[in-house]
Computed example of a mutant assay.
Amino acid sequence: MKQTLLLLPGDGIGPEVTAEALRICQLVAPDIAIEDALVGGASIDRHGVPLTDETLARAGEVDAILLGAVGGPKWKDVSRDKRPEAGLLGLRKGLDVFANLRPAYCFGALVDASSLKRDRVEGLDIMIVRELTSGVYFGEPRGIDTDENGVRRGYDMSIYTAPEVERVTRVALEIARGRSGRVCSVEKSNVMESGQFWREEVTTVHKTYGEGVELSHMLADACAMELVR
Rank of each mutant, 00 (worst) to 15 (best):
T146H: 10
P84T: 06
D156A: 13
G71E: 05
L91F: 15
A29C: 13
R142C: 09
E140H: 14
E122I: 08
G154R: 12
I32E: 01
G178N: 06
E201F: 00
R130T: 09
T133F: 04
A57M: 03
T169S: 15
E226I: 13
G41L: 01
A162C: 03
N149M: 12
T203V: 10
D63I: 07
H206P: 03
Q26E: 14
E35S: 06
A57C: 04
F107W: 13
V39P: 05
L56R: 04
I13H: 08
G48K: 04
Y209T: 06
L56A: 05
C184K: 15
W75V: 07
D53M: 03
V111G: 03
V129N: 08
T52D: 00
P9M: 00
L7S: 03
A86T: 13
G41H: 08
T4N: 02
D63R: 08
L38E: 12
M1E: 14
T133W: 02
A172F: 02
Y155T: 07
L219C: 11
I128F: 15
R118M: 00
G178Q: 01
I65R: 10
G195P: 13
V28I: 15
S43C: 15
S194N: 13
P9R: 05
A33G: 08
R80Y: 14
V202G: 00
E16G: 10
G12V: 10
R177T: 02
P84F: 02
A64C: 11
P50S: 02
A113R: 14
V205A: 06
V28D: 05
A69Q: 09
G178H: 12
T4E: 07
L116H: 10
W75G: 05
G154I: 07
L219K: 10
A29E: 12
P163N: 02
T133L: 03
S194L: 08
A42F: 05
I44K: 05
A104G: 14
V39Q: 01
L51F: 03
R229Q: 13
L110C: 13
L116W: 13
D96F: 04
L5N: 07
L6F: 01
Q196H: 11
A33M: 10
S194V: 15
G60H: 07
E164R: 08
Y160G: 06
D81I: 06
C25G: 06
A99E: 10
V168Q: 04
R170L: 00
Y209L: 09
E211L: 01
Y155K: 10
E214C: 07
P163E: 01
A86H: 03
S115L: 13
L227Q: 09
A176V: 03
V205N: 02
L173P: 01
D221G: 11
C106L: 14
H217G: 07
E85Y: 09
T55S: 01
K74P: 05
E16N: 11
L95V: 07
M225S: 14
P163S: 00
C223Y: 12
P15E: 02
R167A: 04
T161Y: 00
G210I: 05
V191A: 12
A64R: 11
V136K: 13
A69L: 11
A59V: 03
R199T: 05
R80M: 14
S180W: 01
G135K: 07
P30I: 01
S134Y: 12
